[in-house]
Write a protein that binds this DNA or RNA. Sequence first.
DNA 1: GCTTTTCGAGAGAGCGCTCTCTGGAGCGTC
DNA 2: GACGCTCCAGAGAGCGCTCTCTCGAAAAGC
Lengths: 340, 340
Amino acid sequence: MPALPPTPRRAATLEDVAAAAGVSRATASRVLNGVPTVRASAVDAVRRAAADLGYRPNPAARSLARGRHDSIALVLTERDLAELPHSFFAEPLRGATAAVTRRSLQMVLLLAGPDEAALRRYLDGSHVDGALVIVEAHSTNLPRLLRSSAVPVVYLGRPVEDPDSHSYVDVDNYGGARLATAELVQAGRRVIGTIAGPQDMGVAVDRLAGWRDVLAEHGLPAPTPVYGNFTADGGANAMARLLATRPDLDGVFVASDLMAMGALRVLAASGRRVPEDVAVIGYDDSILARTATPPMTSVRQPLEEMGELMVDVLLQLIADPAAGPVRRILPAQLARRESV
Amino acid sequence: MPALPPTPRRAATLEDVAAAAGVSRATASRVLNGVPTVRASAVDAVRRAAADLGYRPNPAARSLARGRHDSIALVLTERDLAELPHSFFAEPLRGATAAVTRRSLQMVLLLAGPDEAALRRYLDGSHVDGALVIVEAHSTNLPRLLRSSAVPVVYLGRPVEDPDSHSYVDVDNYGGARLATAELVQAGRRVIGTIAGPQDMGVAVDRLAGWRDVLAEHGLPAPTPVYGNFTADGGANAMARLLATRPDLDGVFVASDLMAMGALRVLAASGRRVPEDVAVIGYDDSILARTATPPMTSVRQPLEEMGELMVDVLLQLIADPAAGPVRRILPAQLARRESV
DNA sequence: GCTTTTCGAGAGAGCGCTCTCTGGAGCGTC
DNA sequence: GACGCTCCAGAGAGCGCTCTCTCGAAAAGC
């Protein structure tokens, strides 16, 4: 005769809790959901029974019954994950996850691959209550695709096309560039160039404008800007071109840390010392800035805070989809190090 | 009289599809799940109806009925997300997500905060079918906590304690260190030091052993190793100490790129050129290595592949939990650049 | 003392799907 | 021609929870 099989260790259900507490399933549900119209002794009994049985509500059943999911999607692209500097998605991710956890929601990770339409289908397929999109704005047409999707969507950064019809959380790029340029001026630099990003990106346009305006306000001449593509090599090329035009350069504002790494390499190769001969300020305050030689001053974006704010905005939209596009712009800061 | 309310645009259910196709719900379900015993004409009708109605199965209902979730958890820690070099989680994440998507599962992101027990409760709470843990091994006691959790767990990297009772995917750290050291020997270096990691981490122990063994095999003396804590500043301190003991150093193997950044800074400050005076090899092949001045040779771990493999292993364990701990070790490679 | 109101809680109908059970055709067999 | 098979497909019972409906009992009102 075979030994008795071990107790199947089925997870406790609400039914079990109700039975153990001597109340109906409905009452147990009320207690666990904080409905106030329950006699105190019943509340205690249910709480105790739930604890004793190690009861955890089955989220699938709950979601089915409620028609809500208590989970939101986080959309990243494979490309960005591979190429973006560390902080760009790690920090917002951290902020968003913290905010989501605090509200006991869960976050589903979605990697948008080449087939972005699949993503739209997924979002319309009633899996999540809303979506957070953290991708490089210009590298995607997600905003176009997701417009009028079944669930609300919040973007990190202003979408390039038709920004007014989307909800987003952004940082003040113009202000950040002003901060950096003003710092260089304050340090006594007089020939302050810039390595700007591609001008089909709003971010890059704003940063260029901030640099230009501060120079103008101080009556300083603006060297012709050079452009990079937000890569290290692009930054190196741009720096070489800038030095060719303005060998007397004594300061440079670079629109990203990654480009600044290339720029530092070229400055070193040309025999110039940083900051003695040329002061450099990057943008992003990424790990690259912190570990550069010398550690580099850089414009810091409140990325983690942005992630949290994205969740706030998304929940607001989930609660009231008609609240229309919500836009929030946060100020940039300057992380001062030894390159100025 | 109020206008008729707009059609509620309720999502199509299986019932709707079945009705449109003129079959029962059961048959529609069969078609959509690829059960072969269905007449061809019915298959067509159901497929067409599903397409017409834009039918997407409700995952909550499916999960409830099947008792499976088709989703796995990805566990990261806040700390790691903040401090680890870019590639350390981005690449495995990418590999894992790709593998998960390919099998049309979904990935739920879990940030393990200070309260790691909450994580255990979550995993036992029947939300996911299994978990992937991508955290710095020594910074956590997750393995202890998650042992005998309700669902299978696969770790990136060998857990420090009691590794034999856990499933993991790791890379051959000893072999990677051998690769790097052999490269330095081959380049004609004769005084080859190492900046090792904390010796309470298995990874660091293995890397140190690889370096030592290769030197011994070539009959080269091994300078006393110096230790860093896997930070840039730690690497800088270690480098300074190493130079103090062995001013004649002409090669150094550093157990992480981040520490190598600090080392490069100190080498530059001491007036030594890389690679002319001292050759440097890092570990991780992160963006730091690629953007360093000069671009640095580094040991590359197949992190993306590891992420994919983790998913394979996890699915295998979900299918057969009794398959016992599964261990997989992948070989390291060398990414050659200009620092040797 | 009887009716009305309020409060607390049970019954039970779903939510959308899966999957077992059952049964009707259509075919071959003796 | 009765019987047994195989092949398809419908009926319907859940999966675990929420939430409306309903109702008894206690409190309040006249």
